[in-house]
Write a protein that binds this DNA or RNA. Structure first.
Lengths: 109, 109
DNA sequence: AGCTAAAGTTCTATTTTGAAACTTTTAATC
DNA sequence: GATTAAAAGTTTCAAAATAGAACTTTAGCT
């Protein structure tokens, strides 16, 4: 099965993951919650390629999770919609689990 | 940047996603919560290729999220560890969001 | 001994992702 | 007013991940 067309699965978890079950989408959304909104900011923060970033932003707008907004003539940034803001509890639980079960091990010397 | 080595990020969300930020892992874990534990069960349920399934199960065992368990001589199945069970709230929130914001639209004739 | 079922492996083709250079538009500077 | 810089993308090509299907191995059943 292709990962696509999970969007029509009966299970709501599968439908959620059809939107954000890839390697970057949730990190982009996290950045939005941290106040980032511009292409460059995402790129600097995440270090993913412009190629993929552009693709993910487009999808997120199509999915009505981000809203493309002209912050100055001809330049656009991306802001969370209400649907996007509703993702906060998911990020909160990912945060909790990571903090508790994947503690950051500092490099020793 | 490669998606790998997210595991050493300062942000706990990134560290969580370094484990489960791919296309199938969370669905496999969902299946575990639904009582599935065997290779065939996952494969039938999810329809992903055996190749990838084997790889993901191996990783989940290495990550101590699943435990490989010999259910009969020479046959192994996979069960949630405590760390794995701690993922439940994440799935719960994914469920809620999907149910509310990605309603299942039935095909009209 | 031969058959079936289950858990994987291996192989090749296709799709997705990564890296880096290029384009376009707007504003700022000389 | 031409020149430069900054930001948001595109394009191109190489590398890596995923899909699909056939193959292997082990154990139990007849």
């Amino acid at each position: 099965m292709k990962w696509s067309n999970l969007e029509n699965e009966i299970c709501p978890i599968a439908r959620s993951l059809s939107v954000m079950g890839d390697r970057w989408t949730l990190l982009i959304i996290r950045d939005c919650f941290l106040g980032r909104s511009r292409f460059q900011q995402f790129q600097n923060s995440l270090g993913l390629t412009r190629h993929i970033l552009a693709d993910r932003l487009k999808r997120l707008v199509e999915e009505d999770i981000l809203i493309r907004h002209e912050y100055t003539r001809g330049r656009y940034d991306y802001r969370l919609s209400e649907t996007g803001k509703a993702l906060e509890p998911i990020l909160r639980e990912l945060f909790k689990w990571g903090k508790q079960h994947r503690p950051l091990r500092r490099k020793v010397a």
